[in-house]
């Protein structure tokens, strides 16, 4: 059974331990600017929201890549950037409708969450349980899946965000077909 990152914004305090863990794992230094998970602070509302790649089925980034530098990790379901193949054309950064593939000028490559190969450091570092790595059959999964599929949608249809959704589960397993 594939596992997924489960993000529960209501538990987040905005401490950025996840961003530090992510950047440490991926760059060897504590560097939130290079984290692949990002906590958004809604100052005026007093809310915090950790956010990263959903490892969506649609894999916009993967399909848009002109040089096959983004590949499906069969073990985890993540879409991984092969940085030695990536030429830095950035097409995936505009193709991802979730805004979770970013270009890094230093390396000239794009980066995105790869679930740390199945042992995500953000989840291990989160002190409040706002980020957990759980079996993808969590009850929240279908709702998250609904979100992943809302972009793109039938032309003319309006977004109808689920109200008061309690949890958000990323990384829906491959269902086969398209």
């Amino acid at each position: 059974m594939l596992k997924a990152l489960k993000l529960e914004p209501e538990k987040c305090t905005g401490c950025l331990q996840c961003e530090m863990a992510c950047s440490f794992e991926n760059t060897g230094a504590f560097n939130p600017a290079k984290s692949r998970i990002k906590v958004f602070t809604f100052h005026d509302e007093g809310r915090f929201a950790p956010y990263t790649c959903t490892q969506c089925d649609e894999a916009w980034c993967m399909h848009a890549c002109p040089v096959e530098a983004i590949v499906l990790n069969m073990a985890t379901g993540s879409k991984d950037v092969l940085s030695d193949v990536c030429v830095g054309c950035k097409v995936c950064t505009i193709a991802c409708p979730f805004g979770t593939v970013n270009y890094e000028a230093d390396s000239g490559k794009v980066v995105k969450c790869d679930l740390c190969g199945g042992d995500p450091w953000c989840a291990k570092a989160c002190p409040t349980g706002a980020i957990t790595y759980v079996a993808a059959d969590d009850t929240g999964m279908e709702r998250m899946r609904a979100w992943a599929q809302q972009a793109p949608r039938e032309a003319g249809a309006h977004a109808n965000p689920p109200k008061a959704k309690e949890v958000q589960v990323f990384n829906v397993p491959q269902q086969g077909g398209l």
Partner: peptide
């Protein structure tokens, strides 16, 4: 360079 794709997301999901 950060999160630019979200413009697509917002446009396409209306």
């Amino acid at each position: 360079t950060d999160h630019v794709g979200v413009m697509r997301g917002l446009i396409q999901s209306k």
